[in-house]
Design a protein around this nucleic acid. Structure first.
Length: 505
RNA sequence: GCCCCCAUCGUCUAGCCUGGCCCAGGACAUCAGCUUUUCAUGCUGAAGACAGGGGUUCGAAUCCCCUUGGGGGUACCA
């Protein structure tokens, strides 16, 4: 191990940071932290046409959100700048002078050596590529590419310039490594230690890509028998939608529109998607770390947090085989993490999601009713969005709750038995009305108990009709907590509405 | 096609390097039971894998070879 370990994450800013990149970043970060070294960032923007500043900004933001801090904050090198500084041209001149590179058309090609090259990989072991197996490759693009260095030349030079000692990257680069080693040798640069980590795929083995969103939206549209026009909206015409449904494009905007219209969640691919869906950054780090790395001894998710990784991560325990991204497992980790959160932290995290409906009923994070709301849903939530999703009935007007008394569960709650739920509900209403506004939930709970005991009824006989009345469904958190959050006024109003609707059906 | 990598339950994996403690352990998912005023949670239990074939060895998930399967690369993308 060198005196000072230096790792780097070097994304090309051509889109959003996606989970594969996030894991690469995480491993580089963890390895550097473990060895008290440095974790650096670099922007690989040699592809002038595809690189954007917006993408660069979003990637840095996503890394920050994940909690992966880098040590060259404020001084993140960009290859386009290095090009301007002339450091690539110097190397090219040197290679041409030594006859290790030659011009072809207006590009410059590196001459591969005629000996075998062995990569000493920390996770895969020794990989030898025979002489003649790798073709001479372009190191500087022609005029069309702005005479920019290619990725191969730029990485080699920049890694050396930044003093990078360990390169942890995806296995898609394994075949590039002999090229890079050859370049390092020709340029008299040291060869860093390499570690190629396995790739991440979808559960069905396909590549995880943005197109999955379009595919999901299309499939859902087909299932719902969505005819072309429906969701058209801002900046999107019926023709656009037809084109999208006919697979003429994979426009994410249209996919998102359809998803909203159909009320479905598109598969998360990029880090930002997971944040948007309400996953905690720590949860994503844990899941990603365990997909490809494992501390052994049956150590599982509850232990493998960022701090643990920065103290224990190593290359020896990286797996060699590709993994499949399992959303159920991530969700399970997320549910566990949410359960373990201190209440204030949970409240802040839910509030930060900026759900517009939240401020309709709650003042701020310190609102005791909001805290009750978060507490009521913590055990039921897989993501931070779940409280608002599952508790949507809290946020509508009392008159806007709709009742469908025809479904099996609703029938059971309201119509079955003698007396039936609706009758019990009507009988119980005066008792509720007589209760004080404060501590309404627990008072109501006591009243329900008494009411049922007197009549030798199972508590559910009354609790279920109340659930139905206040939520329009048979599922809510425990009655006392729910009524506490909802308050006396809304509870009474909803019960009245419900009884009216029931009698009018 | 050629080159490279990989191969344990459906999934992520422990065990493999340093063969015997492994008729293979954990987690997620699944199923069943208990808890329960709904939904969850929680608890208990069940089912579930060494890709196939050859070797080596007293003994192989562990070492070697072949086959098969999966993946990556083969760009003036990174």
């Amino acid at each position: 191990m060198p005196d000072q370990v230096v790792t780097r994450f070097a994304p090309s800013p051509t889109g959003a940071l996606h989970v594969g990149g996030a894991r690469t970043a995480l491993f580089n970060w963890a390895f550097a932290r473990k060895h008290g070294g440095k974790f650096l960032l670099r922007i690989e923007d040699t592809d002038l046409a595809r690189s954007t500043e917006a993408s660069e900004r979003s990637m840095l933001e996503d890394l920050k959100w994940l909690g992966l801090d880098w040590d060259n904050e404020g001084d993140v090198p960009r290859q386009s700048q290095h090009k301007a500084d002339g450091i690539y041209d110097q190397a090219i001149d040197k290679l041409i002078a030594a006859d290790r590179a030659y011009e072809e058309d207006d590009a410059i090609r590196f001459r591969m050596p005629d000996h075998d090259i062995t990569v000493h990989d920390e996770v895969l072991g020794e990989v030898t590529v025979k002489a003649g197996q790798t073709e001479d490759f372009i190191i500087r693009k022609g005029e069309a590419g702005g005479f920019m260095p290619t990725f191969h030349l730029a990485v080699v030079i920049d890694d050396a310039a930044m003093g990078v000692t360990h390169i942890i990257r995806g296995q898609e680069h394994l075949n590039n490594t002999p090229k890079h080693i050859a370049l390092q040798q020709a340029l008299d640069l040291p060869t860093p230690t390499y570690a190629h980590i396995p790739l991440i795929f979808n559960a069905d083995g396909s590549k995880m890509s943005k197109r999955d969103k379009a595919k999901t939206a299309r499939a859902a549209a087909k299932d719902a028998n969505l005819q072309p026009p429906p969701p058209s909206g801002e900046g999107c015409s019926p023709e656009d939608i037809t084109a999208f449904l006919n697979k003429e494009n994979d426009d994410i905007t249209i996919a998102t529109l359809i998803a909203q219209h159909l009320n479905l969640t598109l598969p998360e691919i990029e880090v930002a998607d997971f944040r948007e869906s309400g996953y905690l950054p720590e949860t994503l780090c844990t899941y990603l770390a365990l997909l490809g790395w494992n501390p052994g001894d049956d150590v599982e998710e509850q232990t493998v947090k960022r701090d643990y990784l920065s103290a224990n991560f190593d290359l020896e325990r990286c797996g060699k085989s590709n993994g499949k991204f399992d959303r159920d497992k991530l969700a399970a980790f997320s549910a566990d993490a949410i359960k373990a959160l201190p209440l204030e932290v949970l409240c802040d995290a839910v509030w930060m999601l900026n759900e517009p409906t939240l401020s309709l009923r709650f003042a701020n994070t310190n609102d005791l009713f909001f805290q009750g709301f978060c507490e009521a849903y913590r055990e039921r939530s897989k993501t931070l969005r779940d409280p608002v999703k599952q508790g949507a009935f809290f946020f509508v007007d009392d008159g806007a709750i709709t009742y469908d008394f025809g479904t099996k569960n609703m029938k059971k709650a309201m119509s079955k038995g003698d007396p039936n739920g609706a009758t019990l509900l009507a009988k119980f209403l005066p008792t509720l009305e007589a209760l004080p506004k404060d501590e309404f939930g627990s008072a109501a709970h006591d009243a329900i108990n008494t009411f049922c005991e007197q009549r030798e009824l199972n508590i559910g006989k009354l609790a279920q009709p109340i659930r139905v009345a206040i939520s329009g469904s048979t599922v809510t958190p425990p009655i006392d907590a729910t009524l506490d959050i909802l308050g006396k006024q809304s509870t009474i109003a909803r019960i009245n509405n419900c009884l009216t609707a029931f009698n009018n059906q």
